[in-house]
């Protein structure tokens, strides 16, 4: 069991002087959060609440101004394969076919060509793309590309998956199917996950916990145990879950929480 910990993490962008200068901006303030490897923590919040900054900190793309991020007690000092990121715009490499994209992390580790391709085949099958290994990236649909992106992240055998709105660019039908897929593949992999999303529904469906981030500066203002993902993993249909009264009540509650800040600003 691995644990990803944010301890008192703050992030401040320094003031920029000169042309196009900006005042110092506190993006995240006093974030405390723990994610265990049997969890999928969904982070929701309005635009500008610092969701993506939070994920970039976990990934090691950004360094916290204060506080520390650790994986099993070891401080995060930069990006690493123990925290693989899945991007909204898939970030697949167009000069590689689907198979070699998935094999990419293995190539970085120095795994021999035949072995890494064999492993990529296994992953292709796991994400339901057994026949698509030779396909160019641009020949794949948005949903297929995200499956490749997730398979590539899994090839790195990460302890945590950092999901930056991976389903944000998909059409509604594909998105529903991918939500179910994402839950199962995450459960199989044994990796913990942090999911950034602006969809309250998606956060509730997929998250073991839902964390609300409120803006200016970004603070964690609420945390909800969801648990619908267990129902879905046990075979309940996404549609049934969404229709249940308790789901609707939680959805309404979270919507209220997120928009409360907006009204304050307006008042």
């Amino acid at each position: 069991m691995s644990i990803l910990t944010f301890r008192n993490v703050s992030l401040t962008y320094p003031a920029r002087t000169g042309k196009g200068g900006a005042a110092e901006k506190r993006v995240l303030d006093g974030i405390n959060l723990q994610v265990a490897s049997d969890e999928l923590v969904a982070i929701i919040g309005r635009s500008g609440s610092g969701k993506t900054s939070l994920l970039n900190l976990a990934a090691g793309f950004l360094k916290p101004t204060e506080g520390a991020i650790t994986v099993d007690g070891t401080p995060v000092t930069g990006p690493g394969a123990d925290r693989a990121v899945v991007f909204q715009d898939d970030a697949l490499y167009p000069w590689l076919d689907a198979r070699d994209n998935i094999a990419f992390p293995l190539k970085l580790k120095g795994v021999a060509l035949a072995e890494r391709r064999a492993k990529a085949e296994v992953l292709l099958a796991r994400v339901g793309l057994a026949d698509a290994g030779d396909r160019h990236i641009w020949e794949l649909s948005g949903g297929m590309r995200q499956r490749v992106g997730i398979a590539r992240a899994l090839a790195a055998e990460p302890r945590f998956l950092l999901l930056d709105e991976p389903l944000g660019a998909l059409d509604a039908l594909t998105r529903t199917r991918m939500q179910d897929f994402l839950l199962r593949i995450k459960a199989e992999s044994g990796a913990g996950a942090v999911l950034i999303t602006h969809s309250i529904e998606e956060a509730l469906l997929l998250g073991t916990r839902v964390v609300v981030l409120s803006p200016n500066p970004g603070r964690l203002t609420a945390e909800v145990e969801a648990g619908f993902n267990a129902e879905i993993l046990n075979g309940a249909s996404v549609a049934d879950v969404k229709a249940s009264p308790i789901f609707k009540r939680m959805h309404a509650g979270l919507t209220g929480l997120i928009h409360a800040g907006e009204e304050e600003l307006a008042a």
Partner: peptide
């Protein structure tokens, strides 16, 4: 070169030299 392409490689465990060889160079071809 796309920033996401570089960040993806870094988060998948690429060293600086690997980012240059496996991402920056092919993408500039």
């Amino acid at each position: 070169v796309s920033k996401d392409h570089i960040n993806a490689a870094r988060s998948l465990g690429a060293s600086k030299a690997q980012v240059l060889r496996e991402v920056v160079l092919p993408s500039a071809v």
